[in-house]
Every structure is written in structure tokens, then in C-alpha cells.
């Protein structure tokens, strides 16, 4: 009986550790993420910005001036992003385009 209780407690503790590990792994893998906005730098190139100023949008292109990142864990941190990458991010619902079009000047 005592051994049974001991095993039960051991098993319960291990179960809690497994669940806790799963939750902790979630926080750990979510560390390297690109948070903020992807701004249009023209010629099909985009860059990461932590915040954007709408005044910096120059309406020289009919494409969105910036995209808000909705799912940071899915956007890798890079120097720049191509239009094809942005299209893929948008089709997956990871970014959302701004209402203003143009090139970001800053």
C-alpha cells in the first residue's frame, strides 16, 4: 500500500514536470522573434522596425507602407525581407498590411 502511494506520487510529480516542461519550452522557443512592423523600403524590400511613424510613409508606391506583425514567433529576424516572403507571411495571417500605401522613409 505504501509502495503504491509512493509510486502514485512519483508518477504524479513526473506528470507535472512533463507538463511544466512543455509550457516552459513554449516560452523558451518563443524568445527569438521579430516583433513590431515590417516597413516597405522600396524595390520589393522590407525591413523590421520596432515601431512606425505614419508621417514617414511617402506615397510613391501603390503597395502597403508597412505591415504589423501579428505572429512574431513565425517571423524570423532578418536584415531584410523580400516581397515573396511578405506575401507568404500575409497568406498565413502572420502580418497585416497598413491602410496607407507608399515607401517608408526612416
Amino acid at each position: 500500500m505504501r509502495t503504491q502511494i509512493k509510486n502514485l506520487v512519483k508518477s504524479a510529480l513526473f506528470g507535472v514536470a512533463v507538463l511544466g516542461g512543455g509550457l516552459a519550452a513554449n516560452a523558451w522557443t518563443g524568445e527569438k522573434q521579430a516583433d513590431g512592423h515590417l516597413v516597405n523600403k522600396g524595390d520589393g524590400l522590407f525591413e523590421l522596425r520596432s515601431s512606425v511613424n505614419p508621417m514617414d510613409c511617402q506615397p510613391t508606391e501603390p503597395t502597403p507602407c508597412n505591415y504589423q506583425i501579428l505572429s512574431p514567433e513565425n517571423i524570423p529576424t532578418q536584415e531584410s525581407y523580400t516581397a515573396a516572403e511578405l506575401e507568404s507571411f500575409e497568406s498565413n495571417g502572420w502580418i497585416s498590411p497598413s491602410s496607407s500605401n507608399g515607401v517608408y522613409q526612416n
Binding site: F14, G15, V18, L19, G21, G22, L23, A25, N26
Partner: peptide
């Protein structure tokens, strides 16, 4: 336990 870890990770 592997399944438990996987599902808590992806579910959360």
C-alpha cells in the same frame, strides 16, 4: 509522456 509534452507544447 512524450505525447503529453508534445500536446501541451503545441496546444498552449
Amino acid at each position: 509522456y512524450g505525447y503529453a509534452f508534445l500536446y501541451i507544447y503545441t496546444g498552449y
